[in-house]
Design a protein around this nucleic acid. Structure first.
Lengths: 110, 110
DNA sequence: CCGCCTTATCGTTCATCTACGATGGGCGAT
DNA sequence: ATCGCCCATCGTAGATGAACGATAAGGCGG
């Protein structure tokens, strides 16, 4: 986390991350990874009520969004969160919400 | 406003918000609303390279996610951000990322 | 009253997502 | 060498999303 890492993601990247977060199974995968620090694909399949191929596909989405990374460990694959990417994502959402907060809404919405 | 409003959104709501944020046009709409405070549908159509019906549909998605609200003003419709909902959404994302930060990843990811 | 302007909705088309089973490839064990 | 395990990918089917044009509803001005 040096000063060089971009404080905010590009818009496309933000959209990709938001999309990756927009499925309950993927949230569950992220939380499980956070809880265990690292997971084999099979463990995630065990936790989720989904077929192995479906879990693998969700993992691919998360990987392509940059939120998780995998590490081949012999015949198995170890997945884990990408802490730096997650920090960047959080910063990007924060920046987005900061920008949105700047306005005062017309509708009370208490 | 009572003690009943959850500080964090339910998981379904979080997914819905993430989904609403996962399209560039909808981000643009939110930012435009933030910049102007309030917008007629036509103004948004003017800003975006999309047909009126498409913009209206994006507005519907944002409305159903609870991020914006509309106010009928005679023959036109005024849209604006729902500041409270946005604050809730930000809190929910923050909580999510807090949970994810708890772990240390296996992959360096520098 | 009639037409105009503004917006929402309908219906359609094409693309993408989600889920599954089945197949294939890599590695360890027998 | 062969078998078995673990995982990724392929192919498919059904559902949803994104975009458009066309249409309808609602109120203002002439």
């Amino acid at each position: 986390m040096t000063a060089t890492d971009a404080p905010t993601l590009t818009d496309d990247a933000l959209v990709a991350v938001a999309r990756a977060l927009s499925h309950p199974a993927r949230l569950e995968i992220l939380r499980t990874l956070a809880g265990r620090g690292t997971c084999l694909c099979g463990q995630l399949v065990d936790v989720l009520p989904l077929a192995q191929s479906t879990v693998s596909q969700h993992l691919r989405v998360l990987r392509e969004a940059g939120l998780v990374c995998r590490e081949t460990d012999g015949p198995r694959t170890c997945y884990c969160l990408d802490a730096a990417a997650i920090a960047r994502a959080r910063a990007a959402f924060d920046a987005l919400f900061d920008g949105l907060d700047a306005a005062d809404s017309c509708c009370g919405s208490v």
